[in-house]
Design a protein around this nucleic acid. Sequence first.
DNA 1: GCGACTTTGTGCCTGCGTTCACAAGCGGCT
DNA 2: AGCCGCTTGTGAACGCAGGCACAAAGTCGC
Lengths: 256, 256
Amino acid sequence: MPPLTNGQGALSPRAIPEAAVARLAVYLRVLSGMKEQGITTVSSEELSVAAGVNSAKLRKDLSYIGTYGTRGVGYEVEVLIDQIERVLGLTREQSVAVVGIGNLGHALANYGGFPGRGFPVTALFDVDPDLMGVPVGGIPVNHIDDIASVCAAKEITIGVIATPPAAAQVVCDRLVQAGVECILNFAPVVLQVPETVEVRKVDLAVELQILSFHQARRADSAPSGETAPQPRSNGRVNGSPRHSVENRPNGAVVRR
Amino acid sequence: MPPLTNGQGALSPRAIPEAAVARLAVYLRVLSGMKEQGITTVSSEELSVAAGVNSAKLRKDLSYIGTYGTRGVGYEVEVLIDQIERVLGLTREQSVAVVGIGNLGHALANYGGFPGRGFPVTALFDVDPDLMGVPVGGIPVNHIDDIASVCAAKEITIGVIATPPAAAQVVCDRLVQAGVECILNFAPVVLQVPETVEVRKVDLAVELQILSFHQARRADSAPSGETAPQPRSNGRVNGSPRHSVENRPNGAVVRR
DNA sequence: GCGACTTTGTGCCTGCGTTCACAAGCGGCT
DNA sequence: AGCCGCTTGTGAACGCAGGCACAAAGTCGC
Ligand SMILES: NC(=O)c1ccc[n+]([C@@H]2O[C@H](COP(=O)([O-])OP(=O)(O)OC[C@H]3O[C@@H](n4cnc5c(N)ncnc54)[C@H](O)[C@@H]3O)[C@@H](O)[C@H]2O)c1
Ligand SMILES: NC(=O)c1ccc[n+]([C@@H]2O[C@H](COP(=O)([O-])OP(=O)(O)OC[C@H]3O[C@@H](n4cnc5c(N)ncnc54)[C@H](O)[C@@H]3O)[C@@H](O)[C@H]2O)c1
């Protein structure tokens, strides 16, 4: 087989699988917590348990960013933090703009300090005249028409869309025109963007519906008794039995 | 190869891939919008474009829930809606409880009508004495100590955790004790739960960090010019070129 | 009523991601 | 100094998911 010729041009020095990037972000948070507790060294086994993943997977994920472990000992917490931050591009601060200062926009603006920081919210936009100039979370709300100049002035790299669904595409277009290439979308619509723009979607309704699906499945599987008689053992006591959909690697660990 | 013996006991009548469930929820929303526009019939091609996925994938997803299409014509919108709702367990209403009525909890409580509805928020919990009894979004806030009785009375099936990270595990344990088997967690911690409980996580910091990663990648790839000289064509004009990490199937469509 | 066209449903192949298992490497102990 | 045990890093196998391409099937026009 011809894996030598990488389909995308073979330029990329080391391509990190998409799924691994999301997990690296989780590892980073866990490591930050460990550092605060004064832990200086951690093994792949310990870290994997704390992050809720398989230890082999964790090691492979870390291997994508380099070789920073010491055999027989483990990893130095600070080194890992620095390296993950480097790979995730957290060395440069990413300024965030929130568009749509309603229920959700207020919550986001008031939420000071995203864990692992590095994501200051520095601009807010809306169309509601009553909101103009009003500070939310210490930041004044600007009119959406000023988006280009304000984004340029504040060097916004990430835009968050928290408007009603009907306005999301228009807002998205404006963000793109303003030069924003990373967008986090809370509105339940599929956005159309140029190839150069990266969109991620947070869709609470979909999350609830996935939970509902599993709930229904569970109800179907045990139609008789109220309390499930058989614990439905799947053989393995440890590990990560839940596959989790597409959204996250896995959101929880089975309690021992 | 032995795909006959399904690893999990071969009981499941029809196992729907996890990734497909998430997409079905998206199709459902798109179909609901079409129904409101008076559209009665839709082809897999049309629906797939609206949902931002490959048409073959869409047909395969729909095939998991049954055979409801008419060759040469397409699908009847209402039939698809009914069937997807059935599979996702949306025929029975799922009552939702929100724990932690701070910034985010307020937004969630005030957010009336999740798209595609069926998820009424009927209970709110917190520890703050100032919030007790105060109605938020029309629902009075209860004390967390009453969680068991209130959840039982209101037949809560889904719990949403919007407390600070430090309280999340305790709240989770209480929800589980109260009989809640589906949990949506906004706190940036890995929850420990019994096997019978399904947890999904919404982690905004991770989302931002994934965006940051791609931003950094982009900056590295084009170190010279400001405006990227080559459009970096990847051959295919149509389709869904972005793989999307683990979280969602794909959040956006490349604009033509 | 029949043919041509349209669209579904799916078999097969390809590629990614996960997991196992183990050799290589390093530190500590004697 | 040498051995032993522990942990990393990764080669290889496996399974799932995605996408192509086509036969089956049904509709519409004549
Ligand atoms: N609130 C939640 O908990 C929640 C949950 C799930 C999804 N969502 C989604 O998040 C989005 C926001 O929800 P919300 O509850 O905050 O809504 P909201 O109605 O409270 O706030 C929307 C804000 O967007 C502003 N806006 C409207 N059009 C605009 C435009 N063209 N440009 C800029 N601003 C504009 C409005 O003035 C308003 O302030 C919606 O798409 C909603 O579906 C919210
Ligand atoms: N606000 C955001 O936009 C945002 C963004 C990303 C993540 N989050 C996460 O969501 C969670 C909530 O964020 P927030 O900004 O709403 O926080 P917040 O501090 O505004 O609200 C937290 C609420 O939880 C309550 N609480 C504390 N301990 C509790 C307990 N044991 N039982 C019940 N209630 C309890 C508090 O009284 C408070 O009302 C946090 O974990 C945060 O990291 C929030």
